[in-house]
């Protein structure tokens, strides 16, 4: 492993940044969930890079748990999107203002 771990940190930071900007600027709920997946993948890259750097397998185990949470998040999130689509005939986040002040 000759690639320094800082490269992985910078890559992970960039991907997390793109995901955060995507969550904030897009109006389509599905794209927002995809951006959350981007952020989860950024943390996973960091976990695996440090796991290889320190020779400790705990990082890879935590990627496993992050993946479990991502799967649960997708299942519930997509169910919520389908329920919203049934009631409002759209998944634009600006249309849902019931809980807005």
């Amino acid at each position: 492993m000759t690639v320094p771990v800082e490269f992985y940190m910078v890559l992970s930071g960039l991907v997390f940044l793109i995901g955060l900007v995507g969550v904030l600027i897009r109006r389509n709920l599905i794209i927002i969930l995809l951006s959350v997946e981007l952020m989860l993948n950024a943390t996973n890259i960091n976990f695996v890079a440090f796991s290889a750097h320190f020779g400790n397998l705990a990082g890879q185990v935590f990627v496993f748990f992050a993946l479990t949470v991502a799967a649960a998040e997708v299942a519930v999130g997509l169910a919520i999107i389908i329920a919203l689509y049934r009631h409002h005939a759209g998944i634009n986040v600006d249309d849902f203002r019931l809980l807005k002040w």
Binding site: L17, L20, V21, L24, I25, R26, R27, N28, I30, I31, L33, L34, V74, A75, L78, I81, I82, Y85, I91, N92, V93, D94
Partner: peptide, 28 residues
């Protein structure tokens, strides 16, 4: 699962960006 939902909902593609651009720019 994502692709399934996208094709199930038949999302229109004229989806514009949100007005939270300045916030996103600041945080980014």
């Amino acid at each position: 699962l994502y692709l399934f939902v996208v094709m199930l909902l038949n999302v229109k593609r004229d989806d514009r960006y949100n007005r939270q651009g300045p916030v996103a720019l600041f945080l980014g």
